[in-house]
Computed example of a mutant assay.
Amino acid sequence: MKIFLATKNKGKIEDFKKLTENMDIEVVTILDNIEIPDVVEDGDTFEKNSAKKALEIAKYTGIVTVSDDSGLCVDYLNGAPGVYSARYSGENATDESNMDKLLEDLKDVKKEDRKAHFVSVVTIAYPNGEYQSFRGEVEGEILFERQGNNGFGYNPIFYSKELGKSFGMATMDERVSVSHRGRAFRKLKEEVLDKLS
C-alpha cells in the first residue's frame, strides 16, 4: 500500500519511516519529487490542522495521505506555544530561535512550574474525503538549557520523565517508544494500517 506523508519536515519523515518499518507500506514524500500545494494551517487546534492538511493533499494527489500536526504545550504559558510551536519566534523561526524564545520566556520559572507536554494528532485521509484522526501525548518538563541534539524541534529542552533524559539525548528508538507522535501513530497503525496491510 502506498501512503503519502504530508510534511516538509525531514525529522518527521525519518520518524514515520522508522514507525512503518517491516510493514507492507510504501511511504512517499516530497523527497520523491511529488508536488503538493501549500496548505494554510489556520485551525486553532491540532485536530483541525492535521485533518485539513491530510484531506487537501489526499484530494490533490489522489493518494491516501497521512498528516501530523504537533506541538509543545507549556502549562505555565497556558498551553503556548501550542499550534504555533513551529513559528513561536516569528515568521522566519528556526528550531534554535524557538528554543531560545521559550527558554527566555521561562528563565525565571522554577523547576516545579516547568511542566509541559507534546501533542501529536495524526490524520489519515482518503481521496474520497473520508478521514480518521488519532491523538498522542507525552508528559515532561522544560529544561533550563539544551541537553543533547538528537531529533528536531524542541527535543533538546524537553525532559521526558519516562526516559529519564531529554529527547535530545535519546536515541530515535527510545524517543519513538514514548513520543507523542509514536503514540498517535501506533493508534493509527492498530486501528487502520494493520487491517489494510
Rank of each mutant, 00 (worst) to 15 (best):
V27T: 04
F4A: 03
T29C: 06
G90A: 11
N150A: 15
K10N: 13
K107I: 14
K12N: 03
E190Q: 15
G62S: 06
I124Y: 00
M169P: 03
Y126V: 01
D105G: 01
V176Y: 00
T7A: 08
K101S: 07
T61Y: 01
N78E: 13
M172P: 08
I30G: 04
G164V: 07
D42F: 00
L196I: 15
C73V: 00
T123I: 04
S160C: 15
N155Q: 12
L193T: 05
Y76I: 05
V39H: 01
G168A: 10
M172N: 08
M99Q: 14
K52E: 07
E91A: 15
L19W: 01
I157K: 12
K187W: 00
D194P: 00
V121R: 03
A58Y: 08
L5F: 15
L188I: 08
K10Y: 12
V119R: 10
I36W: 02
V192F: 13
S166P: 05
G62V: 11
E104A: 06
D105F: 06
K59W: 06
G71V: 04
T20V: 14
F167N: 02
G136M: 01
N33T: 02
A86V: 10
S50N: 02
I30H: 07
K111M: 10
S120F: 01
K165L: 13
K195S: 09
E41C: 04
Y60L: 06
S85E: 12
A93V: 13
S70N: 13
K10T: 15
